[in-house]
Amino acid sequence: MKPLDQDKKNLLDLEGEKMETPKLIDENGKRLDGRAIDELRPIGIKARVLNNADGSAFIRWGKNKILVAVYGPRECIPKHEASPYKAQLRCRYTMTPFCSLEEHGKAGPSRRSLELSKIISETFEKIVIAENFPKTAIDVYIDVLQSDGGTRCAAVTATSVALADAGIPLKDMVAAVAVGKIENKIVLDLSKDEDNYGQSDNPIAMSIRDEQILLYQMDGLLTKEEVEKGLELATDAIKKIAKLQLEALQEAYLPTHDKFLDMNIEQKKI
C-alpha cells in the first residue's frame, strides 16, 4: 500500500493544481490563531435557552455556534420504530446553509449530516438509560449556526448538557474534543484550516467519570505512539470541558438566569 501523501500528490498532479499549504505552526511554537499546541479554543456554554423544548443548550466554541434542543421522552412516531424495551434516541444534525463560506445545501439531509447524526446517536446510546421509558422516543435536534472545524465535538458536548437539562437519566456526562497532527506534531482541538491542511484529525468523545471512549474517528494516519499521546491530551482537555458543563447547568438554577438565546455568550479560555 502506498502512503497517503503520495496518493494525494498524484491526484493533485492529475488535476494540474498546486495546494499552497499555509505555515500552521510558527517558529515560537504558536498556531495560526496564536494558541499553543495543547491549548483549547475559548468555550462558552449556556443551558436552557429555548422556551418550548424540554431541554436545550447553546455552545460557542471558538467560532463555532451550535444550538441543541431535546424533546422527549415522547410518543414514538412512526409507531413501528418504537421498542417495548427501551426509548429510541434519535439525533438529527444539520448544518444551516449560512453556517460557513462553503455551500452546505439548501435543505434536507446530506451525506455528511447523515453520518454525523448516526455517530452522535450511537455515542449517546451507551449513556442514556433508555430502559426507563419503553415505547417512547427522545429527539435531539442539533443545528450548526456557524462552523469553523470541530463541530461534531462541540455538538456532542452541548447535547450532553441539553439531555441533562431535559432530566433524561444518564449514566454519565459526555464531552468531546479533537486531536490531530499538523507539521508532524500532535495538537489539540483543530480549527478548520488545521483540519484541511493538516495530516490527521481524530475526534474523540469520552465519558467523564470512567473515561470510556465512546467515539473515535480517524481521518488521516497516526502511529501507535501518536495515538497514545493524543489520547492523553484529550483526557486532560475533556476534564476541563466537564467543569464548564457543570457550571452551565448550575447557572441555569440561579435567579439571574433567563431563557434567552444570546449568540454572544461569554467564552472562557481554559
Binding site: A164, P169, L246
Partner: peptide, 10 residues
Amino acid sequence: SKIIMPGEEI
C-alpha cells in the same frame, strides 16, 4: 447545598 450533574458519585 449544591447542584450536581448526572454521573457524580453519591
